[in-house]
Computed example of a mutant assay.
Amino acid sequence: MINLAERHQFILNKLKKEGNLNVVELCQELKVSSVTIRKDLKVLEDKNLLFRTHGGATLTNPYIVDRPVNEKEKVQSTEKLKIAAAAAGLVEDNDSVIIASGTTMQYLAKSLPPRMGLTVITSALNVALELLKYPTVEVMQLGGLLRKSSSSVTGTYAEQILADFFCSKLFLGVDGIDLDFGLTTTNAMEAQLNRQMIKVSQKTIVLCDSTKFGRRGFGKICGLEDIDHIITDSGVSEHVVKTLEGLGITVTIV
């Protein structure tokens, strides 16, 4: 049996490689009890070497706080532009799509071909304003309670409008993707609207940079089983990609 220091080093090395850890897997690999592993994780968290999560641990703080959209625009902007360009390539002429809220969604609106015939339903004011520049894009702006931090609307009115339509694709931005908990955002009402968007879409495509993995927001949108395609950047771990592909989700890395 390896000693305490060796066990801790094994845990940190595995975490650095995979980005996330599972208590059950660590028990099997190290041949110790779950009580021992949980104590190990607490010690390492107290030393600021990891963050404990439900059933495991992660390298990044899994708890997300809401930030204004103008702050979010400056974070991972290069990656978001590449992700948006890849997503724009999935839009077909005469498509009817939903573009949800978020800074990556605004980049997507900017990346669409200028002369494409398209119908877009959106909850995001910044997306709608971008699409005003496109003469052949018809925009349906959802109405409701304005959420200033994201420049988008939420609420039952927006959900009721969506119930009358069905679209080929939903482009969805999230604040967190956790392999166990699923997709989340920092606002519960936005999460509820996102769930309605998923219901009225044939395919759900998530656009998120790699910093969103292993994190959780306040409001759960859905489980991974409701997602068809994820577009992210090269910072995502190989372990996460294999897990997602094992669930039948297409993963595009830009």
Rank of each mutant, 00 (worst) to 15 (best):
F165C: 06
A128N: 03
M116H: 04
V251C: 14
T122S: 05
F165V: 09
I205Q: 04
E6S: 14
N94Q: 15
S33T: 15
T252Y: 07
L81T: 04
E159H: 05
V120S: 01
T36Q: 06
V97N: 01
C208M: 13
L26T: 01
M116P: 01
I99D: 01
I64D: 04
K16F: 11
N61M: 11
G56I: 06
R115A: 11
V137T: 01
V75I: 15
P62V: 10
C208P: 02
L132C: 13
A124W: 00
E25M: 10
H8P: 04
T154G: 05
K220D: 08
N94I: 07
D178G: 09
R215D: 02
K42R: 13
G143T: 14
L49K: 04
L172S: 03
N94R: 14
L179Y: 09
L146E: 03
R38D: 07
L112C: 02
K203M: 12
L125E: 00
T186Q: 03
L172N: 01
I198T: 11
G214T: 05
G143F: 02
D95R: 11
N94Y: 15
K242A: 12
L145G: 08
S151D: 07
F171Y: 07
E6H: 11
G144Q: 05
I205N: 03
K169A: 08
D95P: 06
A57P: 00
I161C: 06
G144L: 04
V120G: 00
L59I: 12
T232R: 03
N94G: 08
L244W: 02
A86L: 12
K17C: 07
T122A: 01
Q202E: 15
V32C: 12
T243A: 12
T104C: 03
E130H: 00
F181D: 10
S101C: 13
F171L: 10
V240L: 08
S210D: 12
L146W: 10
Q106L: 10
I83H: 01
A85L: 08
Y63W: 13
I231N: 03
T186M: 04
I249H: 12
T78R: 14
V174R: 00
T53S: 03
K16Y: 11
L49G: 09
P135N: 11
N20Y: 07
M197R: 02
E245G: 05
E130C: 00
V120Y: 00
N3Y: 14
Y157R: 07
P114E: 01
A191G: 10
K80S: 03
L179C: 12
E6W: 09
G235S: 09
A191E: 09
L183S: 07
I230A: 07
L59W: 02
S33Y: 09
R115P: 03
L15K: 00
L81R: 06
M189N: 13
M140S: 13
D226T: 08
D226F: 01
D164H: 14
G235D: 10
